[in-house]
């Protein structure tokens, strides 16, 4: 009895796990991985073999100052864009048809055209209005490539941030507004104390992505003669014709972005700890 029972149990047991076989898919995967690893190793080896202390001593300060310019551009235009995005987001939600259409057109234009074309439009294009700009005393501002770049980036990121903000505010349920109204809070109080704290949690990740996009996009200013990290790299390359200059720039951008990604991850984990179980 007990014997047949245990035999029946043995039948019910799952079959023993087979040792993984070298199927065709697995071999292909390993080969592809090996190719990638070799490519990565090749870049590292190239960097090690072409390591030149003289070059490093000469151009490292330039890279640092370029990095500082990049950080400045990104920080200033992201903050200014955040301020500018508030009225646009409000306009997008406005009940007035004309205001809503204008805000939508703004967002559509800046999200639908390349950042490079926008930067050129402002840097080269506003030059056509030189007499008018001089008349209102703004020419000094638009003459400098640096200010033009920040202006273009601010307008661009404002459009994206307005969409992020609008999406985040709309993600907060209507019930929150109604409950706050029932408690007798004014609309502004509701927005500041109830809706925004919840909306910004939702928006945090998107904001992080937007800053990362800005960092990568800021390389464009090198074309309009601002010496940011990319500009310094181009200058170093044009002097040395050493290809490693670009690899170093890529590594710096990569570590900047990675740092930001980790920072937003940490921030999100810290800020949403009340939502975790």
């Amino acid at each position: 009895m007990s014997l047949s029972q245990s035999a029946a149990q043995a039948d019910d047991l799952p079959p023993p796990v087979e040792a993984s076989k070298w199927t065709r898919a697995r071999i292909t995967g390993v080969v592809l991985l090996a190719i990638w690893a070799l490519l990565g190793l090749g870049i590292v080896l190239f960097l090690v073999s072409s390591w030149n202390p003289e070059l490093f001593r000469r151009y490292a300060p330039n890279y640092l100052s370029g990095l500082w310019v990049t950080v400045q551009i990104v920080v200033i235009s992201t903050l200014a864009g955040a301020v500018l995005s508030v009225p646009i987001a409000i306009g997008r939600r406005s009940k007035n048809r004309i205001i809503a259409a204008l805000a939508y057109a703004y967002v559509y234009f800046f999200r639908g055209t390349p950042l490079l074309a926008q930067t050129f439009l402002i840097y080269y294009g506003l030059g056509s209005f030189r007499p008018e700009l001089q008349a209102i005393g703004l020419w000094g501002f638009f003459r400098e490539a640096w200010y033009c770049a920040i202006f273009a980036f601010t307008l661009n990121t404002a459009a994206y941030q307005a969409e992020i903000l609008r999406g985040a505010v709309e993600s907060v349920g209507r019930g929150q507004w109604e409950a706050a109204a029932a408690l007798g809070l004014s609309r502004f109080q509701t927005l500041r104390k109830i809706v925004l704290p919840q909306a910004l949690l939702v928006a945090l990740r998107s904001y992080g992505n937007e800053v990362i996009l800005m960092i990568k996009g800021s390389a464009i200013v090198a074309i309009i003669t601002v010496y940011d990290l990319m500009g310094e790299t181009r200058r170093a390359y044009s002097r040395t014709f050493d290809f490693q200059t670009y690899i170093w720039a890529a590594l710096i951008y990569l570590s900047l972005v990675e740092f930001l990604r980790i920072a937003t991850d940490r921030m999100e984990r810290r800020l949403t700890r009340h939502l975790r179980r």
Binding site: T113, A117, F120, L121, Y124, G125, L126, G127, S128, F129
Partner: peptide, 10 residues
């Protein structure tokens, strides 16, 4: 006519 042309490009 930079503004015109870049506007058209956009």
């Amino acid at each position: 006519e930079a503004f015109l042309f870049f506007g058209i490009a956009c």
